[in-house]
Design a protein around this nucleic acid. Sequence first.
DNA 1: GGTGAAAGGTCATTAAG
DNA 2: CTTAATGACCTTTCACC
Lengths: 159, 159
Amino acid sequence: MQPDDLDARLVQLLTDHPQLPILECARRLGVARGTVTSRLARLQAGGVISAIVPQVDPAGFGYDLVAFCSVDIIQNIGHEPVTEAILAAIPEVTDLYTVTGDHDLHLRVVARNGQDLQDVLDRISQLPGVARTSSSLALRTHIQGRTLPLLHAVTDSTS
Amino acid sequence: MQPDDLDARLVQLLTDHPQLPILECARRLGVARGTVTSRLARLQAGGVISAIVPQVDPAGFGYDLVAFCSVDIIQNIGHEPVTEAILAAIPEVTDLYTVTGDHDLHLRVVARNGQDLQDVLDRISQLPGVARTSSSLALRTHIQGRTLPLLHAVTDSTS
DNA sequence: GGTGAAAGGTCATTAAG
DNA sequence: CTTAATGACCTTTCACC
């Protein structure tokens, strides 16, 4: 679907003020309450808004280390068994992608400290189907999961 | 902070049923209403719950291509100017990390299609301070931003 | 547990593309 | 003619005491 400028401003407003009532949103955007309601419904139906749920941050309970890990898979094994094994066995894996390039899988993992990270990477390496892993530590997270600038860019160029 | 099993079940409940009233949460968890309220407040204050906001999914408005890009920075330039330039100029960058290893920065970018992706990568390459980029395309997103399994693992071993 | 107040869902009307 | 916005009604629910 194609969101417009009003959609972008609505999402921005809700992002800045998480629990702002719909009536207040309508007031600040200068539209009727029903408009805000229908827009929200349309955004959710269209998949632009995937969910409105509590965002759990692992750093909040000690997992403040982030690393990226590339996994090579043993040749004659499919991707599925390996990805399923990783997802099932390693809760520290927050993101898992099949990628092109030098390696097969790309994952983002979190850990409590260096020792814990080594343990996590070891557990991944020892999973059946995993041939080799290589990793790099995130020294600093400049931004993570930002999407609003893109949404604004799209709606600005549209209007 | 250290969340316990009740915290994990509360977050799980709210994740499964996004707009479940607090009273209903208390009923299903078998605790008093005030308990749920105070738990939620504590989780937010402690940073375990970072926010409860609409999750914007770029795939919802056409950006269904995901790629990872490694950036090498020109030696005598600091990281800050480059990261700031990237964040300011390229809205397609959703994640940006300073990392250890063969490269300096690790980013996640989204695009509308292959041609659009090439354009995005070109724009990154041409930013001042960027020496070189290399990228890999995500063929499949198995999981992204999952944290609940980790939360459950932590609280299970704690209890 | 009771009470005041506000939020959200629904609908008919109206304006606009 | 289709689509969307408006404003008001009504029911339900929440937070407070």
